[in-house]
Amino acid sequence: MSVKSKLVAAAAGLGMVPAMLVALPVTEASAHGYIANPPSRQQQCAAGTVSCGEIKYEPQSVEGPKGLRNCHGNVGRFAELNNDGKGWRATSVGRNVSFNWRLTARHRTSTWEYFIGGTRIASFNDNGAIPGATVSHNVNLGNRTGRQKVLAVWNIADTAMAFYNCVDLQVS
């Protein structure tokens, strides 16, 4: 093979690199964590318990600015998580519930917060620690009974972001 042929082949190969990079799958940068048990709305979507859109492929991706009080973290493509009439299954529990998070990317954590109807019912301070791949919190629901929607928030210590999960419960 001549030098000219080698140069043409090398140039052709280099010309393909940008096309190959564009063709590679894009990974979601905001893929980090969700409540697996009791099944959060994201978990119900991922498991096919409830028919959902894109969230079924990335239940860990509900990330938004700190301070929100909704199920979708202001991520428009996950807005269906806010739809209370969608048929979410409520898990039967007593007044104390263990919420088990599955973390796909771990971050320094300031706090974990749990709300019912806008009222904070529990908070756990991690003081900037990096959690393990799973995290569990035991939360007392107080005197609440019947169907309840818990908003769980994982506040990241070194960014302005948080992760949002809603969990439907039937409290006896």
Rank of each mutant, 00 (worst) to 15 (best):
162 A>E: 01
48 G>V: 03
148 Q>D: 03
33 G>L: 02
156 I>L: 13
120 R>D: 04
43 Q>I: 05
134 T>H: 09
102 R>Y: 12
35 I>P: 00
37 N>C: 02
150 V>Q: 00
28 E>V: 06
166 C>M: 13
54 E>Y: 04
141 L>W: 11
113 E>N: 12
47 A>I: 12
51 S>A: 11
84 D>P: 12
52 C>I: 03
126 D>A: 14
76 G>W: 07
98 S>V: 15
132 G>T: 08
137 H>F: 08
116 I>H: 12
165 N>E: 01
73 G>Q: 11
145 T>V: 14
136 S>T: 03
164 Y>P: 01
114 Y>W: 14
128 G>S: 08
56 K>D: 03
122 A>Y: 06
52 C>V: 03
132 G>E: 08
72 H>R: 02
90 A>S: 15
148 Q>S: 05
132 G>Y: 07
122 A>T: 06
109 T>D: 11
154 W>M: 04
30 S>P: 02
58 E>K: 14
46 A>H: 04
81 L>M: 01
89 R>M: 13
72 H>T: 00
148 Q>H: 03
112 W>A: 00
114 Y>C: 04
113 E>K: 06
141 L>C: 06
78 F>R: 00
109 T>P: 05
150 V>Y: 01
112 W>S: 01
139 V>L: 06
115 F>D: 01
164 Y>S: 03
104 T>F: 10
136 S>P: 00
45 C>G: 12
51 S>H: 05
73 G>I: 05
138 N>Q: 14
143 N>P: 10
157 A>M: 07
49 T>R: 09
144 R>M: 08
75 V>I: 13
40 S>Y: 06
66 K>T: 14
79 A>K: 15
77 R>M: 15
138 N>R: 13
74 N>P: 04
78 F>G: 00
166 C>H: 06
124 F>P: 01
39 P>N: 08
41 R>G: 01
94 G>I: 04
73 G>L: 07
32 H>I: 04
84 D>R: 13
144 R>Y: 09
65 P>C: 10
57 Y>E: 11
37 N>I: 04
134 T>L: 07
153 V>R: 01
88 W>H: 12
72 H>P: 00
46 A>N: 04
116 I>C: 09
104 T>E: 13
54 E>Q: 10
165 N>D: 09
27 T>P: 03
91 T>W: 08
32 H>S: 11
146 G>D: 05
